[in-house]
Write a protein that binds this DNA or RNA. Structure first.
Lengths: 334, 334
DNA sequence: TTGTAGGCGTTATCAG
DNA sequence: CTGATAACGCCTACAA
């Protein structure tokens, strides 16, 4: 692998000059530039970005930490971030946190130690305080899909509470009054906020929250099945079900059907996120649109603007969810 | 950010000694080690992996190039690679190629320039020759989900031809004789191999391939719709449909149903990949199991074994697909 | 077991 | 506009 030194030799100029034509900032005469370019081509020269990064303490890469690499949710998020950044000539370095505090911290350390120009975080286990502390370090951080009060400028988030509210209200408006809820893990900020929205909607319709119609699961399909199994065992009537995300809604629906319920006649269910398969499941899932891809793009734009001083026009920091009505909910009938 | 130098000062030892305790290779007396460790803790020292990498020309990270960041297929693949590598203490650097030659090459360059210890590639646009050339470079490459004759040792692949064959044969065995095919882009190796399998199965049953029952689309859902629209316009009877992947199968099924066909009575369809949503779509999709996650893990193990000399027992280089029968296919009736 | 010094491939600050 | 030369933070012979 050719180095800058060999290029300088071949072109009969100094190292500095080669560096200059690479970075195109300082002025170089056209003749010299030509010579250098030619030499680079001839040697098949590729700059070593590690060395560049060490010398300049910049990386031209930005770090991205997500909880998981699989799953529709994170896929869309990563894709959003990447496509925006890529078209600005930046590369991303992805790593995972698995929603475990220790791993999240380790992932962050890794990204920082790689000299990323900035890092975009989707973290769930780490505390607000930790993030605030982190933001004082030399690597700028940006937070996606989570709102941290004291770091508002760095956050791209969804109004999850509103989402939970909308989901629940959609059922109330269809005449349902006994509405169960399978929420996500309550240590997760979004899961909790969605659940708050559920309660607010109930309150607004003067329905008192019934602990027996509530279950907290793990955001996975199996969690949805467990959830509804638990709820059905309570011997409490319910005709509506609000789920913390689409995966759990799917699990719950499958289980309910196996138990002989027909959907949506016997049970109206609404999901959350509108991941890609929401429209594949049967009946097609009524759910809350969570614009993760958009949010990913926006996080990228925020980085571009704040770190690389590009002129991004439209920065929207908090996104509003909306209801997507499909076929898994219907008017109550009795 | 503290450097190794400050640590050495505080601990009153030389740079070299600090370096030694970090890497734990050379021998250091317990007393000195203690001092150094203490100093590191006190300064909150974190090694700068960029500098480490430059000095040692190793990265302790391995590069991963995939076509896309979203979608069930790549998600599973990345997750497989990552989990295996992470538990061995290695980090991955992910980037994308978007199935475009230029971008794939750029992504590869990026990973190499980042001093990755090895790179795992899922590339579709780049030629075998290019890969062979690349493999002569100093960064070891591994190829996933593609078989390159001269690089067999570095490949983890699926027998796509067999998959296409199994899919088609499953329909033939159900009595179907007029079987259409919506294949993936024929410049993609896997798409082509699957199509070959389709033809082999037909031949085996003495059915001559009918060009009018073939359509090549883009592996996306919309491609599936286009495909079946095209096929139905041919005025050619067919009762079976083999699709290049599950997404296209889904698109085709939706379109067919909109056109009044009832599934699987009027049309049996089989997909390919068994991505997560295959069992969500209606009727549940009969498809070919593509163990991407396993293959990802295996690629990681291969790297671990060949690059880091760990003792991986079970290396399987070519995977066999298998048929998963669900509800989208049935005996022909007329 | 420990220290010294040269080098990894660039960038950046000076002079010239 | 161009060329030395000192960083960047760490690794690694080679010596001691």
């Amino acid at each position: 692998m050719a180095t800058i030194y060999q290029v300088s030799e071949l072109a009969k100029v100094s190292l500095a000059t080669v560096s200059r034509v690479m970075n195109g900032n300082a002025k170089v005469s056209d003749k010299t530039r030509e010579k250098v370019l030619l030499a680079m081509k001839e040697l098949g020269y590729r700059p070593n970005s590690i060395a560049q990064s060490l010398a300049s303490s910049r990386g031209n890469s930005i770090g991205l930490l997500v909880s998981e690499l699989h799953g529709a949710f994170f896929g869309e998020m990563m894709a959003g971030v990447e496509s925006e950044l890529r078209s600005a000539g930046k590369h991303i370095i992805v790593t995972t946190g698995h929603s475990i505090e220790e791993k999240e911290k380790e992932g962050i350390e890794f990204l920082i130690s790689r000299n990323c120009d900035a890092i975009i975080l989707h973290v769930e286990a780490v505390s607000d305080e930790y993030l605030e502390e982190l933001s004082k370090g030399k690597t700028p951080i940006f937070i996606i899909s989570r709102y941290v009060e004291n770091l508002a400028e760095q956050c791209i988030s969804l109004d999850n509470e509103l989402g939970g509210y909308l989901a629940t209200k959609s059922l109330l408006d269809l005449g349902h009054t006994d509405i169960a809820c399978i929420a996500g893990p309550q240590y997760k900020f979004d899961a909790k906020a969605r659940f708050e929205g559920y309660k607010r909607a109930l309150a607004e319709y003067n329905i008192t929250f019934n602990e027996e119609l509530f279950y907290s699961a793990d955001f996975k399909e199996t969690g949805g099945s467990e959830g509804i199994a638990h709820l059905m065992a309570q011997q409490q009537e319910f005709t509506g079900l609000v789920c913390g995300n689409d995966e759990m809604a799917s699990g719950a629906m499958n289980f309910a059907r196996e138990r002989g319920l027909s959907l949506p006649e016997d049970l109206s269910v609404v999901g959350f996120d509108d991941v890609i398969f929401a429209r594949y499941i049967h009946p097609k899932l009524t759910t809350i649109l969570n614009p993760v891809n958009e949010m990913g793009r926006m996080a990228a734009k925020l980085v571009l603007k704040q770190i690389y001083q590009t002129k991004e026009q439209t920065i929207q920091q908090v996104f509003k969810p909306s209801l997507i009505v499909r076929e898994s909910t219907q008017l109550i009938h009795r």
